[in-house]
Design a protein around this nucleic acid. Structure first.
Lengths: 121, 121
DNA sequence: ATATTTGTTCTACGTTTGTAGAGAATAATC
DNA sequence: GATTATTCTCTACAAACGTAGAACAAATAT
């Protein structure tokens, strides 16, 4: 199952905080903050979907992510690639490099990274 | 406004065909094909959302995309980047290079592309 | 001990999405 | 001219989403 956009937002706060009580998450939101029951609902749904879990402290819960941001994100990008580029990562990568306006400096950094990767193969 | 996943699928067929009657789109689907009314509904919604338009031929319509795949996709990736990488394309790019398992050959091709890009700056 | 804060579950309601039937109009074919 | 193919609109309906009130419970502060 998938997180919705709204749930993803919340997940992002949780990833940032690593673990958090509802209060902390509410605080993380910019104004206008959603009702606390809204966040509670989202947390419940996300728990049901298996993306987060919690430890009980008294009667309230300290939530934490069950999925690493990295992994979640990878799956996302893969889906995108599958969808738009016939499942070819390199096709996507070259598209991305050409279309995104990276600066010269950024491109050079990227090349350095690629060189390292090539060496590791 | 945004296309949903199902609408995106249909959009992909349309991008591939460049222009098409409903019949052609239906044919593009793999088995089990959706009911034609389903596709009709999607086409209507996509028209309302402003992603496609059509030319009338008799009483039926030849649909065509109003958005280029490239542009649509770019917006998508940008959204993703904004969402997950604090709006930093290069941060995303390096993440992607490291996480995706590109072959040596693919990496080398990519480096060539980057070199070209750097020269053009 | 009372009031306040924090958090939980249940319920709810309008909107969007996925899917498609019914009915009607036009076009093509026999 | 009657039959068939095409497809458009209207209507529908269940599931998922976004949002939040009501009611209640435990913890904390005064």
């Amino acid at each position: 199952m998938q997180l919705t956009k709204t749930e993803e937002d919340l997940m992002n706060y949780l990833w940032k905080l690593e673990k958090a009580f509802m209060k902390d998450l509410l605080e993380a939101y910019p104004e206008p903050k959603p009702a606390n029951t809204t966040v509670a609902t989202l947390l419940k749904r996300m728990t049901d979907k298996g993306f987060i879990a919690y430890n009980l402290f008294g009667n309230s819960r300290e939530y934490y992510p069950l999925v690493k941001k990295k992994d979640y994100f990878s799956k996302h990008v893969n889906g995108l690639i599958k969808h738009f580029f016939n499942d070819s990562s390199s096709q996507f990568a070259s598209f991305f490099i050409k279309e995104t306006n990276l600066s010269k400096k950024e491109l050079e950094e990227l090349r350095a990274i690629i060189d390292t990767e090539i060496k590791n193969k």
